[in-house]
Design a protein around this nucleic acid. Structure first.
Length: 429
RNA sequence: GUGGGCGUAGCUCAGCUGGUAGAGCCCCGGAUUGUGGCUCCGGUGGUCGUGGGUUCGAAUCCCAUCGCUCACCCCA
């Protein structure tokens, strides 16, 4: 329609939706902090090579989905398609992974040039979590329990936890060879996509949605049969901890990864309420990545939450109420309009956290009350000629019952403080 | 990259086999010259995505193009 519009697949988030996003982020971060994870802030742009070396040269992300461009000095840079690579790079660069444990989180936009559809955007937002320096399945369990806590904090229900192990690199190589051999034997039954992947990313064939290939995939060898003893013990340890904590999971031996760096544990939280893009959160262990990017060998595990997808599953928080001010200041007449800004400043000073909208742009009582009502404010504060002369304010409840009263400024401050406290209690429930 | 669906007012949409554009919501004003929400009355607002074709006449039919959307693929 209009010539000016946002770039395909990149969306604005408008009020009052932004209020729901902030509430969502507040609750997620609250849960992460409950486990001692600390925020790290990372650039949106990195050297292209970082992603090629971490995510994998032959993955779809690196081959055809990155926003890659030349810097003015000729360097090849890319907008980050995910957060782990940058986080590991920062950890190595600043030496904060060496000989110690780290629990980190970050949040922000990621960029992938894909064809947009429901739940899939070219700029999308993730909260990512990464932990370094911990080898055992206790960390894997902690991160999965942390996810469960986040869903509880958000009131998101009906997610299914899918779990698998990829084994260690040697197991994975052995398994991969057997898998390729198996599919080679049934070459004539493979569809076009599977043939293409056979030698680039054969594990992904297991992920195919093509019903015609279901039987073939069912008959394929499973990773579990190729696990080394330590990898098997790790996996069993994780499952035991989840069972002890009462977190239900479904084992899915066809659960694999589009990113190359994972080993051992992989997991996804999945919904069937979002159409084709049902994965809301995904993660796992990546013990080899730090070394692969030039650091000391460092065990690591992490996950990322897709915020657009989670936002779709949120219960119906009243976004208008979350963002609503406590009070709206109505000022009619020359004298009232002159004193109103100073009064508003004194009130904001006196009542910490007060959300006070002061009427601007004039208007009669009727028009200003209309704006007060639409703002969602609980209270209207009114100054007309009489109040301006007597240094008083009329206080009118807009949402609860009750008569309006004319009060002096100390009484007004007390009333507003009570309103702020009530609003906070309401919203933090 | 491939396929399906859809583009009419700020938003949600109606407009039958072609006759020159409508409703609801929103917004503004009035009924109510110091009081919002409910009701009633009035008003602002549209090159019908764009370009071309058929026709006396196109929002309506045809072609092209752009955009949105869903799915494949991929993934958070």
């Amino acid at each position: 329609m209009s010539k000016l519009q946002s770039v395909r697949g990149m969306h604005d988030i408008l009020p009052p939706e932004t209020a729901r996003w902030r509430e969502m982020e507040r609750r997620i971060v609250g849960a992460l902090e409950a486990y001692g994870y600390q925020e790290i802030r990372l650039p949106l742009v990195e050297h292209t090579e970082l992603f090629a070396r971490s995510i994998g040269e032959v993955t779809d992300i690196v081959e055809k989905e990155m926003y890659t461009f030349e810097d003015r000095n000729g360097d090849s840079l890319s907008l980050r398609p995910e957060g782990t690579a940058g986080c590991v790079r920062a950890g190595i660069q600043h030496g904060i992974l060496h000989n110690r444990q780290q629990r980190l989180w970050y949040a922000g936009p990621m960029f992938r040039h894909e064809r947009p559809q429901k739940g899939r955007y070219r700029q999308f937002h993730q909260v990512g979590v990464e932990a370094f320096g911990m080898t055992g399945p206790d960390l894997d369990a902690e991160q999965i329990l942390m996810c469960a806590r986040i869903w509880r904090a958000l009131g998101v229900e009906g997610l299914r936890l899918e779990l698998n192990t990829l084994g260690d690199p040697a197991d994975r190589r052995a398994y991969r060879d057997r898998l390729v051999a198996y599919f080679e034997r049934h070459r004539d039954a493979l569809d076009e996509d599977a043939l293409r992947r056979l030698h680039t990313n054969p594990l992904r064939i297991l992920d195919s949605k093509n019903p015609a290939m279901r039987e073939l995939i069912e008959g394929a060898p499973r990773v579990q049969e190729y696990l080394s003893e330590p990898a098997r013990t790790h996996y069993e340890g994780l499952k035991a901890r989840l069972e002890e904590a009462g977190v239900a999971y479904v084992e899915n031996s066809r659960l694999v990864r589009g990113l190359d760096y994972y080993n051992r544990t992989v997991f996804e939280w999945v919904t069937d309420r979002l159409g084709a893009q049902g994965t809301v959160c995904a993660g796992g262990r990546y013990d080899g990545l730090v070394e692969q990017l030039g650091g000391r060998p460092t065990p690591a595990a992490g996950f990322a939450i897709g915020l657009e997808r989670v936002a779709e599953l949120l219960p119906h928080w009243d976004a208008g109420r979350l963002a609503a001010p406590d009070a709206y200041l109505v000022a009619v007449g020359e004298a009232a309009e002159r004193v109103a800004p100073a009064l508003a400043e004194r009130l904001r000073d006196a009542v910490p956290g007060l959300r006070l909208v002061a009427n601007c742009g004039g208007g009669g009582f009727k028009a200003q009350f209309k704006r007060a009502d639409r703002s969602g404010a609980a209270l209207a504060l009114v100054i007309g000629e009489e109040e301006a002369q007597t240094h008083r304010v009329t206080l009118k409840p807009l949402r609860a019952g009750g008569e309006q009263v004319r009060v002096d400024e100390p009484a007004l401050v007390a009333q507003l403080a009570a309103q702020v406290a009530a609003r906070r209690q309401e919203n933090h429930r």
